[in-house]
C-alpha cells in the first residue's frame, strides 16, 4: 500500500497529461483500424467498379444493337441454316438432288471425296443445257449448308443428250461450324460494314430443308428386288 501511495504521489502531477496521451493513443489505434478497414473497402470498391465497367460496356453494346435495329432472330435463323453445326452427308446429297431438279440438270454421279479443311467433300457430275448447269452452279453457291465449289470441269456433250448439252464435274465442300462459340467477342461487330455485307449476301441464300422419306422402311429380304 505504501508503494502504491508512492507511485500515486509521483504520477499525480502528470496524470492529466498522461490521460490525454492515453486517450489519444486509443483514438489513434481506432483510426488505424478504420484505415485498415478502408483499405479492404477500397479493394472491394475497385473490384465492384471493374464489374460495373464490364456490365456497362455490355449494356452499351446491346443498346447499340437495339438502336441499329439488327433483326437478330432472322439473322440467327439464316446463319444457322447456312453454317450448320454438324455436317450431314445424306442431307447434302438430298440438297444437291433438290438443286439439280430445280435447275433441270441430271446428277450422273455423286461420290464422297473425303473430309478436309472445307468440311466433307463430294464429287458431283451433272449434265444438261449450259444455262441450266450454270443455274445449278449458282444455286449451289448460294445455298444453305454452305456448299463451296473447289474445282470445276465443264465439257461439251452429255451421253444421250443433245449437242448443246454439257457435263460439269465439280468438287463440293460442305462446311459446318468448326469453332466453339466464344462469349468474349465484341457484339457491336454486327453493325460493322463487313457484317452488314455478309448478312446482305446471306439474305439471298436459299435454305434447303431436308426432306423426310415417305416410303416404308424394313423388308424381310433386303436383297430382294
Amino acid at each position: 500500500m505504501k508503494g502504491l501511495s508512492k507511485v500515486t504521489t509521483f504520477i499525480k502531477p502528470y496524470s492529466l497529461g498522461l490521460v490525454l496521451v492515453a486517450v489519444g493513443l486509443i483514438i489513434l489505434l481506432a483510426g488505424g483500424g478504420l484505415l485498415l478497414s478502408w483499405q479492404t473497402e477500397q479493394t472491394a470498391l475497385d473490384s465492384v467498379k471493374a464489374q460495373v465497367a464490364v456490365l456497362e460496356e455490355k449494356k452499351a453494346a446491346l443498346d447499340r444493337l437495339v438502336a441499329a435495329k439488327i433483326p437478330l432472330g432472322t439473322y440467327e435463323a439464316t446463319i444457322n441454316g447456312v453454317l450448320v453445326d454438324e455436317p450431314s452427308v445424306p442431307v447434302v446429297m438430298d440438297q444437291v438432288q433438290q438443286i439439280a431438279s430445280e435447275s433441270n440438270v441430271v446428277v450422273s454421279a455423286l461420290q464422297f471425296a473425303g473430309s478436309g479443311t472445307s468440311g466433307t467433300r463430294l464429287q458431283v457430275s451433272v449434265g444438261g443445257a449450259y444455262t441450266n448447269v450454270l443455274a445449278f452452279l449458282n444455286r449451289l453457291e448460294t445455298a444453305g449448308r454452305l456448299l463451296t465449289v473447289s474445282s470445276l470441269r465443264v465439257s461439251a456433250g452429255v451421253a444421250g443428250g443433245s449437242n448443246s448439252d454439257v457435263t460439269a464435274t465439280l468438287e463440293l465442300g460442305n462446311h459446318s461450324f468448326s469453332g466453339q462459340v466464344s462469349p468474349q467477342v465484341d457484339i457491336t461487330k454486327l453493325i460493322t460494314p463487313e457484317y452488314t455485307h455478309l448478312f446482305q449476301v446471306l439474305a439471298g441464300y436459299k435454305i434447303y430443308q431436308a426432306r423426310s422419306g415417305s416410303g416404308v422402311v424394313g423388308k424381310p429380304n433386303p436383297f430382294e428386288k
Binding site: 437478330l72 440467327e76 462459340v181 454486327l190
Partner: peptide, 8 residues
C-alpha cells in the same frame, strides 16, 4: 449476337 459474331 455472340453466336452471330462467332459464326459470321
Amino acid at each position: 449476337a455472340v453466336l452471330l459474331v462467332n459464326k459470321g
